[in-house]
Amino acid sequence: MATAVERRVRISRVAGRYLVFDIDDVLYIRRHHCICAVLTGTMPQNPTQNLFLSLPVELQAEEAQLLVDTGAGYIADELTDHMSRLSTTMDECTRKAYLQHIKQQRRNAQRVFEEEKAKVQAMHQNKRKANKPSSSTPSTEPAPAAVTEEDNLLFDNPKPTLPPSTTIPKEKEFSLPGVTPTTSYPLLPISTTPPAAPASSASTDAATLSSYPLYKYLNSRGYYTTPGLRFGGDYSVYPGDPFRYHAHYLANSYRWDEEVAMLDLVTSGRLGTAVKKSFLFGAEKPGGQQSGVDGAGEVRVFCIEWAGM
């Protein structure tokens, strides 16, 4: 826990959007900062479905701002960082480290592949032996260890299938599988040193976002939020990790003096009730920014439910 707090999450800013690529970072902010955000990438293991998605995670500007404010993350402009590293002036050291890292991953992948292959081959061999003896000599079925010896003795044809399993890896030694790592970790500075961080993490445009105070208020009370598009609000608000809980509220943020149309309340209230949520709206009291601690003004929040009289 103590070490985890030290962690600084790299928030990649790509064309004004905030992404997180590192699975450890994603779990860290989920665990410690009540931010689950949205998985947006295609799942490489099963790329033809939309229910389970993969990295990167897209953060809302408010979420990125919150991480920067609490010092848990820093915003890095991904394009400039990459271009500065990728251009030919890249120093030999980082490049070597990066290539070494990739090579290591390729070797790992190769090893796993080989193990899988060996396992499959073993399975096939077992099957074949299970089949063949059952047709010819059913008595050999129960003891597989005995079968292999017997097999080698009795049948010549399975034997040629064994040597390839040992020769193939040698053949593949210089054609390792390619690897696309998720993060460019050794290439980029893993965590910019704290003095350098504030410069790059100047701040998002979320500071000017009107809904930031409400978001911060909800987050500080342990609520998780996701984009509210599904239920027609600014946020869907969960009482805990959305893995375990359904959303309780759909939230909209208003300015303190903003006139809220009665119809908005009715429509949102009805919609919320229809999906078993209540409609939450809130605003920040003006002037709180000067008096409050680190910009946290007083936020008032109300809930509306359809009375169903």
């Binding site: 990649s12 790509v14 064309a15 004004g16 959007r17 992404l19 690529f21 990438g41 990295l55 990167p56 897209e58 991904e78 394009l79 960082d81 990459h82 990728l86 490049r95 990066y98 290539l99 990739i102 390619g178 690897v179 696309t180 790592p181 998720t182 993060t183 460019s184 970790y185 290439l187």
Partner: peptide, 29 residues
């Protein structure tokens, strides 16, 4: 094989290929 170039990560691919609207050779997120 690394003489000619080297593999890029998913992160790098996003960095290089995602851009603002109207940028040539990029697409908005």
């Amino acid at each position: 094989e690394y003489e000619q170039g080297f593999p890029l990560s998913l992160q790098a691919a996003y960095a290089l290929l995602i851009g603002n609207d109207g940028e040539r050779g990029k697409i908005s997120l």
